[in-house]
Design a protein around this nucleic acid. Sequence first.
DNA 1: GATGTCATTGTTAGCGCTCACAGCACAGAT
DNA 2: ATCTGTGCTGTGAGCGCTAACAATGACATC
Lengths: 356, 356
Amino acid sequence: MSHTAQSDGHARRGRAPTMADVAQVAGVSHQTVSRVLSHHPNVRDTTRAEVQRAIEQLGYRRNSSARALVTRRTLTLGVVACNPTLFGPASTLFGLEEAARDEGYMVSAVTLRRYTAKALEEAIDHLSDWGVEGIVVIVPHREAVAALAELRLPFPVVTVEGGHSLPIAGVSVDQELGARLATSHLLGVGHRTVWHVAGPPDWFEAEARVNGWRSTLEEAGVEVPPPLVGDWTPLSGYRAGQELAGRVAAGSARRTSADVTAVFVANDQMALGLMRAFREAGLSVPGQVAIAGFDDIPEAEFFAPPLTTVRQDFAAVGQASIRLLVSQLESGSTSHDGERVVIEPRLIVRRSSTSS
Amino acid sequence: MSHTAQSDGHARRGRAPTMADVAQVAGVSHQTVSRVLSHHPNVRDTTRAEVQRAIEQLGYRRNSSARALVTRRTLTLGVVACNPTLFGPASTLFGLEEAARDEGYMVSAVTLRRYTAKALEEAIDHLSDWGVEGIVVIVPHREAVAALAELRLPFPVVTVEGGHSLPIAGVSVDQELGARLATSHLLGVGHRTVWHVAGPPDWFEAEARVNGWRSTLEEAGVEVPPPLVGDWTPLSGYRAGQELAGRVAAGSARRTSADVTAVFVANDQMALGLMRAFREAGLSVPGQVAIAGFDDIPEAEFFAPPLTTVRQDFAAVGQASIRLLVSQLESGSTSHDGERVVIEPRLIVRRSSTSS
DNA sequence: GATGTCATTGTTAGCGCTCACAGCACAGAT
DNA sequence: ATCTGTGCTGTGAGCGCTAACAATGACATC
């Protein structure tokens, strides 16, 4: 009801009513209307009521542009997201928007098709043109984040999964820890070593998961097989699976250490593809090969078999990034001081890794 | 580089440079600067170059609030999305944002937790407070859309999958056609009838898919089994699967028409759950039961077995909704005249329905 | 030489709002 | 009686920009 078109009035034809219109109807000055709207204490109750009534009657809404012009605050945050069709970025965006709204900010989003420095720069240009007060960059891609550091923007920036190397504030899940959890779980259930299907090497998350996997194997003193590389898609996991299928021990017994008996896959979608390839090769999971994924997408629990995986709390990531951004905003520091929030992932054990 | 903080200058300390600052540096009036920025033809080339240089030097960016104030155009569109973690809404949002950007608009998104009229109204309030020029509502929920019709907002609104009943412009995929394609495909490969696991009854898409399924069966003159109801989640599909598993013919031969031999599931995630339940019940897909889903999520091709499903072109939906919104904006019609765009879905046949 | 036309530039007046400050009434203190 | 404070309200300026109009000079036309 508050947004009904003005039902009444001698308001200038066609145009939305202004504060002056409200003031006239209420018989006060525009400034008093402003005070009512911004909950200034020094307004008599009867006056306040009068103004409220006039506002309702005219269907008045404060003009955000005029307000932003004079306050120099747009109360808008920008988000640059890579592919929001992926579960992770989408969930992050979701949590982020809610947190921003709670803080009184609006979120404007721009999505990236290509992960180049130029595309990122254009996206940020677009956002700054609209006067955002700060931005969250959900582009866990090496080249893009490097470009970001060069830019030295005149407003705060927070990256999500943007690596640790740069002096930019950021939020991330401890990917390395997640990889260690998965890998040592697989070692723990009796596998001699663990193979790995990695994500694209220019993604931070992929790199961190490789590192976590590798160091776990090294610390356990077992052989580190060469990692395969995918691109996060089920198809690439499928291809990796076809390749790996040839190396699974023919019988059910585990023979040499070169045999594949356990695979840690860098995300759930690729794990799905991998499992299809194994199924087609007549290999049983977890009977002949154990598998663990990463992300815990909602489908993972219902895969055949249900997938052991590492759960990331994306909503928390979104919230944390808004908190970080807003605190920078309020402290007025554009100093890019590189504060970091790290969120711990959790291993979810399911049948794909448990030789029941 | 265009957004480097002003590197130079006698600009008023701390503040971003204004048009007047640029004008002074370039030795012209602020109006000439404005003309250069808006590509007005009547500016001498040398002057234009002078101004450009001053802009670069100061790192000037036009203040969007001031501009919006005087032009009465925020060039911002609002989107109200339900759960953007779902593949459909996320993809739509993705396509929509890109289309909006191409048209020169910014997109601000608000997400909904609960699908109530109140939540929708709050979301829209939030958007109008920020001065959006129009909104796209991706909330295919009966109550929410009904509330939307009541509101009669002072700006154009486009719904995505908002049903046909209301006089609001909208874009949708022909859900009924999709359901018919899937159902008649299942009948076509020899099943006596087709069971159905529906989505929540208060979602338009769920209802349309039920209708398409039912009418296809009726036209074929076969019995219409009672539909089961899920909530789009894999878990609810799993539960439906457990229920249905008991009714699958014990042997491999098809006996009575009450036996379940084919199921059309209202989305892919539930189909995944259903297949898990069948697997656990020792039933083979497609051997004993054929299954078809809806959406064609990226994972569907890699399910066990790969899932026959109905593909929706979500990107096209997003684009179409922006086109519709922008055309309303340009024609100045807030008339909610209920123009509708319908996009055809496509059946993707995979192994889950083909008794190879 | 007067006139009109055109390209180019400058001047002025707001857009709708908030901020700083000024009033004014009335309370209590001096 | 004057001074000071405090609660409420109004006035004026100005945020940075665009739109409308005015002004200028160059050049062609009559």
